[in-house]
């Protein structure tokens, strides 16, 4: 789980071109959207694509998205629960 959290932080920075941040700057439990990272709805959808592509996990509606992207830990937990072994 901790490994997945670290991996996700790196992917978030890469996917969203957060070039002024390092993985250490992202608080695992802090609010991901609208918080210190300043992410918005388009960023969330960009991450939805990344999660589906890299982990085979679909997040196909806004309500679910809000829950899953509450924090990096919430995201990791969701991916951990849903990911299929055939992907990645």
């Amino acid at each position: 789980m901790e490994k997945l959290i670290q991996e996700l932080k790196t992917k978030i920075i890469e996917t969203l071109s957060l070039l002024d941040m390092t993985p250490e700057d992202i608080d695992t439990d802090a609010q991901l959207v609208g918080g210190q990272t300043g992410l918005d709805s388009i960023d969330v959808l960009e991450l939805v694509m990344m999660v589906e592509k890299d982990y085979g996990v679909k997040i196909d509606n806004k309500e679910l998205g809000m829950k899953v992207f509450a924090s990096v830990r919430a995201l990791a937990r969701y991916i951990h629960e849903k990911r299929t072994d055939t992907v990645h």
């Binding site: 388009i42 960023d43 959808l45 960009e46 694509m49 589906e52 592509k53």
Partner: peptide, 12 residues
């Protein structure tokens, strides 16, 4: 991606 994935950021 055989039309599986696209970037919402690029679309906007």
């Amino acid at each position: 991606s055989d039309e599986q994935f696209s970037s919402p950021t690029d679309f906007v």
